[in-house]
Amino acid sequence: MTTTAVNDTKNEYAPEHAPRMGFADAAPEFYQAMFRLERAAAKDIDPTLYHLIKIRASQVNHCAFCIDMHTKDALAEGETVERIVQLPAWRESRHFYTEREAAALELTESVTVLTEGFVPDEVYARTAEHFDETELARVIGAIVTINAWNRIAVTTRMVPGHYTPGMYKK
């Protein structure tokens, strides 16, 4: 069977979009402050949990660049494809996650969306059952930080697909 040019065109990927700006070059002091915030947020938090928080918030925020980055980092550090693939439907596939992870994912979604204008008391209480106050503060810090990065990446249209694991670690 011969493939025609029309069929070949149908099978091509869409062209890659260009970023709107190089945020790091346009606001270097702010960008470096974000990296310091990132390092502070990641300190003393379980890396597996941190990756799940970053990936899930990025999915909710439709941040393709951050989904690409954090999925690649998680896989490079030993996370399974299965758990990453199931993450958008974690409630229906809870058996892939610990109770602590599920609580943190629920809080991640509540803080990320804020559709009701607040994090429901019951969500906070469920999360607090699994983390002491210091750990919970770290989880909140991780959620806040990834949401800030998502907003930068989505607004400036950072391009996914070019990240390699550990590329931005300093």
Rank of each mutant, 00 (worst) to 15 (best):
A26F: 07
G166R: 04
M158E: 13
A125L: 07
V154Y: 01
Y168K: 14
F65G: 00
R39P: 00
G117P: 01
I143D: 12
G22P: 01
F131D: 02
C66Q: 08
L136V: 00
V123N: 00
N150S: 04
M1R: 15
L52P: 00
N11C: 01
D8Y: 12
T112R: 09
M1C: 13
E16K: 08
F30D: 07
H17N: 02
F96W: 06
C66F: 12
T3A: 13
A18I: 05
I143H: 12
R94E: 12
A41M: 04
T9R: 15
A57G: 06
L114A: 07
N61L: 11
T112K: 05
A142K: 02
T112D: 08
R157E: 10
L105T: 02
K170S: 07
A27S: 11
H130E: 08
F30A: 13
T80N: 09
E99F: 07
R56D: 02
R83K: 15
M69L: 15
L37Y: 12
R20Q: 02
V81Y: 05
P160K: 10
A64N: 08
A26I: 03
A142I: 02
T112Q: 08
P28Y: 09
D132G: 03
G22V: 08
E135C: 00
Y163Q: 04
H51D: 10
A104P: 07
A24Y: 03
T112V: 06
